[in-house]
Nucleic acid binder design. Structure first.
Lengths: 200, 200, 200, 200
DNA sequence: GATGAATGAGACTTCATTCAT
DNA sequence: CATGAATGAAGTCTCATTCAT
């Protein structure tokens, strides 16, 4: 029984290895330029074995998206422990700034996936990528609402757009400094944001 | 000799057809999901003939990027005729809003290409995509400078980031309304922007 | 000891489950389009366990052929209890007609297997399928012989050919009515067949 | 221009080579056991090039079926020149007998394909195989009708069933003699068949 | 005995690029 | 110049069979 538990645990662990490897490699290389062999190699698994855990390449992409969503949930979960919604939002921006070097190399993990998947004829995966961003928008709007800011949904759109757009430029121009600059402005904006003033 | 001129003209025309077809199809399908046959078909040119005009697929991507740059130059060139830099910036945002439905379907023409090309090991094409966005940033900064706004480079970064980020969300969430909302906010911001106030 | 007997009985039961599942699935899907997983699933047996009972896929095919032979033996055994050989032959044809809907869907169980196996370089399994049909020919010839019909072997060939050929057409054209028509003609022929008249 | 005609002719010729190779190999090995490489090799064509002429393996199967139909049409077309419908039918049986050695090795070209394709979930190709056999049934019935035999459709079914069934046994038992025996009986039956007597 | 997991050979298919005329 | 045809590398996926426990 210990054995069987061990084996099941091992298998589950391999699934995890494949999932995180997929998230990593897909972020680095994009969906279309990544082969199953790339992911298998990164996970240290024989190619043929991948199909024991994931029936298609798309399922691996789906798993990578779920992984990114889980990481976002971790972050927002941690931030939720802060008593002040303003601090939560500033924490989000700070965490985003901290990733500037990775962003310069590979772009936004979810944003670049979403962009690539949005070009497919079949919109299934694109919708899943969209759901992750939607989740982030919702959480952000909830913080603005807690701050009693007017039009919290619009503010969330503004904030997340700024991050995604800046990351795109940071990536394209290979310039982490862009994230630093825009990040500082956003922090200052959040700091000075009063309940009556919604304009960043 | 007339003949040779005709043929050269014809050839040049075919090259243009291929270039615009490439810009169109690459925007629609992305680089990796687009085959040479797709582009040739869209241009109405036999596949084998493409190589007379473009030695590799990457050269077609380069040509598409140049096409997008030319279109941006057309736009900024037109806006440059406006006497007020504030109106020029508002014209840019208005033009961006007008493209919201295309953006919802296929994302930002340059932004999505830049994102995809940024994942390549070879950064040559990514740099060219970056140059197009850098050009737009520069033009935008010049307008803010003409407005005597403080930190015009940062303002340009803020404005273009907002557009790129909102387009990404518009594309991913298939929601043109996002562009409308954020676009109106940006127009209002530009309207109320005084020389002393740089915070959007 | 009781335990070991139980386990042996259980094992034997699982073997039977696998055998009938193989007969069923191979009839439905053919040899090459059937995976071991298909058979294991139909039998409710874990895939890895199949190899405890059958060393290779071919052994499962062999078992399925044996199953079909056993079923034919059951049928002829039952018919053998009839006193009149003419009635036995008519019983065979009647049983064949009764299967027309299954035949329209999947063809003759033995005939389709034999056809597929006959294309292999290794003729071993084809020979086993042939043996089943040979057995049926022999039984049929024995009945004609008992009827004192001339050239009983040829008559058997004619009768079984008619059944197999009609089933092939019934299957290919998805038309059970073909079996009904030809079956009635065969019954009428058997009815009017005198010892002196061998022509159907 | 001669060149272009030559090249087109050569291409068309290669398509033919592939088609006849497919018909040959599929008859010999069956659909599922035949790889594209097998067909390409038989045709003397590089594997990758096959896809220039046939988009999928199934299209090659379709082409092979069309080839078999064309051969049947050739045969019936030739027989149609005979003035007596009885002779035409005897010619069909004679031609069938002449193929007994091939039949013993690989079975009926159309019959075995139809049997294998009939097991697919997608019935498209099965229907096309069925159409070939239907065509043969129709031609045969037309001859019986010309002979003023009663129930010509049933007679056609009886005749074609006899051929298909005997071929199946000939193939399965590797015994060309079976075709000879049954063939002679069928010839005799056709010979003695009067307008009033439909029972073989 | 039993079984989830592993594996590697091989199948079909796509496509950028080259070639022959 | 033009182009239908050719090519081979590479990618995704399947599956019979074996293994470790």
């Amino acid at each position: 029984m210990t054995n069987s538990v061990d084996r099941r645990a091992l298998a589950s662990q391999k699934r995890r290895r494949l999932t995180t490897a997929a998230a990593r490699v897909l972020h680095r290389q994009g969906v279309e330029r990544t082969t199953l062999a790339d992911i298998a190699h990164e996970a240290g698994v024989p190619v043929g074995n991948v199909y024991y855990y994931f029936k298609t390449k798309d399922e691996l992409v789906r798993a990578a998206l779920a992984e990114h969503r889980a990481r976002l949930d971790d972050l927002t979960g941690t931030l939720d422990r802060l008593p002040d919604p303003r601090e939560r939002l500033k924490g989000l921006v700070t965490a985003w700034i901290a990733e500037r070097d990775t962003a310069a190399r590979h772009g936004s993990p979810v944003g670049t996936l979403a962009t690539e998947l949005g070009k497919r004829a079949d919109g299934t995966l694109a919708a899943e990528a969209g759901a992750v961003l939607r989740r982030l928008l919702d959480w952000t709007a909830a913080q603005f609402r807690a701050l009693r800011a007017p039009a919290p949904d619009d503010l969330a759109l503004t904030l997340i757009s700024a991050c995604q757009g800046t990351t795109l430029l940071t990536h394209t121009l290979q310039a982490p400094a862009l994230t630093t600059h825009e990040g500082e402005r956003l922090l200052h904006w959040l700091e000075t944001l009063g309940p009556a003033d919604g304009n960043p």
